[in-house]
């Protein structure tokens, strides 16, 4: 069985970028979004979205882990016995997450501290296991890799959208903590819109609800509402 599949793969080019491949990347961004449609991977994500910068770092980490764990699982798929596949998948994921954790620790320690246990929790992020089980165990390496990247992008898009809304309305800034911090609205002259000296915006105050973890739930709930209003085939009938 294993020999037949390897022979078949040799005939086709290993890396191609046709219609199917584009669909693998584009689908998870809307129709099959991991967070709003498949409801996977909410666990470790929502607590990091109070600022945009940690959300971006988290998304990059998840895209990396998802892409490469799909690739490796797919390469090994004909050698993994069915009974122990969960353990094998978990070991692949856990090794990749360890690589990410150690890299982040040495490159950017403050953000590593801020994300704390949530980097480790990428292991149990259901999205990774879900994609390995549903796609990588049954498909060729290149497509599995693209599927992983696509789902990571879909996840990151939601994460960054939520992070942007929460940071702008909750703190009045954007990308705080990163080298390109923008100060948008706030009570001092450092900000673009100065609520103390600018009469038009003297009523404005930061919304403290947005800083609370619960705000992430509301925002995702509303994002789901908007998405399903446009995309009626996703509506829950039950």
């Amino acid at each position: 069985m294993a020999e037949i599949t390897t022979e078949k793969e040799k005939k086709e080019p290993i890396i191609e970028f046709g219609k199917t491949e584009r669909k693998l990347i584009a689908d998870p961004l809307n129709d099959n979004n991991p967070i709003t449609v498949q409801v996977l991977g909410i666990c470790s994500a929502l607590a990091v979205t109070s600022l945009v910068y940690p959300s971006v770092v988290m998304s990059v980490a998840v895209i990396f882990v998802l892409g490469f764990s799909s690739l490796f699982t797919s390469l090994l798929r004909s050698y993994i016995p069915k009974q122990v596949r969960m353990i094998v998948q978990l070991v692949i994921i856990a090794s990749l997450v360890t690589v990410v954790e150690l890299t982040l620790k040495s490159v950017n320690y403050p953000i590593y501290k801020q994300l704390s246990v949530y980097i480790g929790l990428i292991i149990t992020n259901c999205i990774v296991m879900g994609r390995l089980e549903a796609f990588a165990m049954a498909n060729k390496p290149w497509r599995s890799f693209l599927d992983g990247i696509g789902n990571g992008l879909g996840y990151g898009a939601i994460l960054i959208a939520v992070g942007t809304i929460r940071e702008v309305f909750g703190k009045g800034s954007l990308f705080a903590g990163s080298p390109i911090e923008l100060k948008i609205i706030g009570p001092s002259t450092d900000y673009w819109i100065d609520t103390v000296n600018n009469g038009w915006f003297s009523w404005y105050a930061n919304n403290n609800l947005m800083v609370l973890p619960a705000a992430a739930m509301f925002i995702i709930g509303i994002l789901i509402w908007i998405q399903r209003s446009y995309n009626t085939k996703l509506v829950d009938v039950s």
């Binding site: 619960a214 739930m217 709930g221 789901i224 509402w225």
Partner: peptide, 16 residues
């Protein structure tokens, strides 16, 4: 459009 999942998120937020 809010039935099921969307509502579950909002309830969780309120419970939080």
């Amino acid at each position: 459009a809010l039935r099921g999942l969307g509502m579950a998120f909002i309830i969780t937020g309120l419970m939080g």
